[in-house]
């Protein structure tokens, strides 16, 4: 079947899938983002059985599979559990100029970590266990990037 192949450029069909989606934040997500947007406050959900405070919030505790019964206000500073400094990234993905970081941050009052961006740090200035604080966007619309990023904590923590 391939005797015609000499000097033939193999064809490629170019395309792009572009489909609008509407991901529902639900009651739990809406309350969480409303608090971030209007009051610059992080909220977690507390398990009614084991008392673990989950952040990001959710309706049920993954550990004991019971309902989270209560909202808990968390600090806007926390501890860096792990981090990376990004040197190369797909231009469509990078939300900040390179180099920026990602961290798993355990906010004060939470029992779990959550993923967010790191910025305003010196080269070599990040370390596991260090204190970081949230920098909020001036214009907030109820989404995860209402927090622009976390940076090494400046004040007394």
């Amino acid at each position: 079947m391939d005797d015609w192949r000499e000097n033939q450029e193999l064809l490629v069909m170019e395309g792009r899938i572009k489909v609008p989606y509407r991901w529902f934040a639900g009651e739990v997500g809406t309350r969480y983002f409303e608090s971030l947007r209007d009051e610059r406050k992080f909220l977690g959900t507390k398990c009614g059985k084991c008392g673990k405070v989950h952040h990001v919030p959710r309706r049920n505790c993954p550990d004991c599979f019971a309902e989270c019964s209560e909202w808990v206000e968390l600090g806007s500073s926390g501890t860096l559990e792990t981090y990376t400094v990004v040197r190369r990234q797909h231009p469509q993905l990078a939300p900040l100029p390179l180099p920026y970081g990602y961290g798993i941050i355990r906010l004060d009052g939470a029992d779990t970590g959550f993923l967010h961006l790191l910025h305003e740090f010196e080269e070599g200035g990040l370390a596991t266990g260090m204190r970081v604080e949230a920098v909020f966007a001036e214009e907030r619309e109820g989404k995860i990037l209402d927090v622009r990023y976390f940076r090494p904590a400046k004040g007394v923590s």
């Binding site: 990376t84 993905l93 990602y102 959550f114 989404k143 990037l145």
Partner: peptide
């Protein structure tokens, strides 16, 4: 990177731009 970014939750994580390499870097560091 665009495909592996899409494995992350669109409410809380995806729009931070994380994908397979950067998430693995967090694990490697930990």
């Amino acid at each position: 990177p665009l495909i592996t970014n899409a494995m992350f939750d669109p409410i809380y994580e995806r729009f931070l731009g994380v994908e397979a390499v950067t998430s693995s870097a967090l694990q490697a560091r930990a």
